[in-house]
Write a protein that binds this DNA or RNA. Structure first.
Lengths: 351, 351
DNA sequence: CCACTCTGTGTAAGCGCTTGCAAGATTACG
DNA sequence: CGTAATCTTGCAAGCGCTTACACAGAGTGG
């Protein structure tokens, strides 16, 4: 079942059927009706591969994500998908599991499918890829990584401002001894957050004492970091975490050790994933507006597709601001205790 | 940049390049090496649309989901994606937002892209679609909806057993007054769960008193249902929820009203989404093994792709069993109180 | 040493669709 | 009513790839 069948049934040429399907060119209304009826009767739908091959473009956006498990990326994907759908586009996702090799092969697949635009929402990156994408002339959006280029737009979060919001909020609550729980990476957004934290505490809140714990990722990493902190003797009044997941891990360990949050120690996250709201105590965090990011991605990728041709699109850079969301995991710093070596502990309650 | 360019550079014909790329037919090893080098040097990658058009099949699986926001569906998708990737397939997702119209159009898109197999993990369904898919001869898997057909495999969860596990567990704890919080739908898996609950309580635990609250979906629905229960005068000792999300809503309302869970009332969910573990108190629930479902989907879709041709695959039906996961939201039923009209309340603690 | 079977490679016909070009049909206008 | 301008439609050439078929050269056995 193909265009030919439809054309034969409607007694026109395939060219005419194509024009009806794509609503281009001029077709007499009676002819159009005849064609539409034939399509209807035959229950015809077009072969999209053939269409893309012949036409050169597909109404498809590509999106590559490090990890769909991460609700953060998922939220972005959902927004992009919804926006794209509204404009008649579908979106092809691939996830890389943080492996550069998969990134490269995914990009190849996307290019091989001739997507109309490509969003890379990943934390790993290969420099050679950027060159390849630049040469492809395809509209590309990077989130949080890479550099702007003629056809590449860059979306960045203002981590500095975000950390500033968190730190100045904690400072206002009287906290003077902060711990930072982060990663070991010397690159990427996670490292940027750490640097932002250190800069902010140094410049805006010079009276603060600061310690950082570097760790593996995820919830377990947070737990581990908390344990490490508890035995370090630093005794912070607040623990600033590089993201929400780590913060939940910290919360968990603190709970296991019967250390009251936020009475004895405050905890903050970063991102504001859904979990942040449900965990107990609900997490104070800096919200990155995922929806806005998704909208911007779709907007950028689809922007010129109608009036195409000469948009030079000067290496655009989009800056996204975060929003401090105060919940239950933060409170005024406890008064200085006689034994600064120990966290205040709730008395172990019977179970 | 296409096959021709590679062929010219390697001084062979396009046919030979194609054979090297697809590892079919016989190619002399020296020729192969020359072709590979040309591919390398030109940084060539194939046009997948052309390949699919010419070859008839694509190494792509399609998956249509009602709502990727639902972590349950997402888990299935992730497993399918991972399995598919391991076998050299990519997967195209679409989500329908529970709208039948989007389902139909998504199926069209998948067929139009000539996917090698299609998984429908949706709760809405159009009877006409089943016929269409049946005619397409494409390997199809339905999850939790639809009927088995020659080319259509059906994966079903044994809700009856699941509910039986929950009810008999609660019965063993001494609970005799159960409330069920569910939906209004008269169809689909959610309705099946409700029916299973009613049948189980009637047959296996005849001494129980039962009330059902039908509601809208989601967390808010659960909260609303709990409020309704609190004013109904039924005073259950345990609340069985149709899924985890609703259960979390119930938990939330109970907490707001300072009703102790599980001391005064036990709560159970269904599904075991990630949230169930993090909520306080952690939710007792019947776990549907998402990974297993994902594996089965991939396995089914890719099964015959090598030895294809004559698999009649008699309308297969796959039954998945649930597993009771006991956490903190359930406990022995409280002793009968003098004023059965009221839930036991914790005394409001100071904040 | 010849008929025959493999093995390796090229030729060319599509796969289903879009689109530039040109011809035929229709309309406008003097 | 004739001619030019405009609207409709069809023809046919691809898009980049796969694959049946043909065929040349290399083994093989008798």
């Amino acid at each position: 079942m193909n265009l030919d069948d439809v054309a034969r049934r409607a007694k026109v040429s395939t060219a005419t059927v194509s024009r009806v399907l794509n609503q281009v060119g001029a077709v007499r209304s009676t002819t159009r009706a005849r064609v539409m009826r034939a399509i209807e009767e035959l229950n015809y739908y077009p072969n999209l591969n053939a269409r893309t091959l012949a036409g050169g473009t597909s109404r498809t956006l590509g999106m590559i994500v490090s990890n769909l498990e991460n609700p953060f990326f998922l939220d972005i994907f959902r927004t992009v998908e919804a926006d794209a759908y509204r404009r008649g586009y579908e979106v092809l996702v691939a996830h890389t599991d943080y492996r550069p090799a998969r990134l490269v092969s995914s990009v190849r697949v996307m290019l091989g499918r001739h997507v109309a635009g490509l969003a890379l929402v990943v934390s790993e990156m290969e420099p050679s890829l950027i060159r390849e994408l630049e040469n492809s002339k395809l509209p590309v959006v990077f989130y949080d990584v890479g550099t702007a280029r003629p056809n590449i737009t860059n979306i960045k979060v203002h981590y500095r401002h975000g950390m500033q919001k968190i730190v100045s909020y904690l400072h206002g609550l009287g906290h003077r001894r902060l711990a930072f729980v982060g990663h070991h990476t010397a690159l990427g957004p996670l490292h940027e957050r750490k640097r932002a934290f250190l800069e902010v505490t140094a410049e805006y809140a010079p009276g603060m004492r600061v310690v950082t714990v570097a760790n593996v990722d995820g919830l377990a990493g947070g737990q581990h970091a908390a344990r490490e902190l508890l035995t370090s003797g630093f005794d912070p009044t607040a623990i600033v975490c590089v993201n929400d997941i780590m913060a939940v891990g910290v919360l968990r360990e603190l709970r296991a050790q019967r250390i009251a949050v936020p009475r004895a120690v405050s905890v903050t996250g970063f991102d504001d994933v859904a979990l942040a709201e449900f965990v107990v105590p609900a997490l104070t965090t800096a919200r990155i507006p995922r929806e806005e990011i998704g909208h911007r991605i779709c907007e950028t990728l689809l922007a010129d597709h109608s009036s195409a041709r000469e948009r030079p699109a000067p290496g655009l850079e989009v800056i996204i601001e975060t929003e401090l969301v105060v919940r239950e995991s933060t409170a005024p710093a406890p008064a200085r205790r006689s034994t600064p070596k120990r966290f205040a502990r709730r008395k172990p309650r019977a179970r």
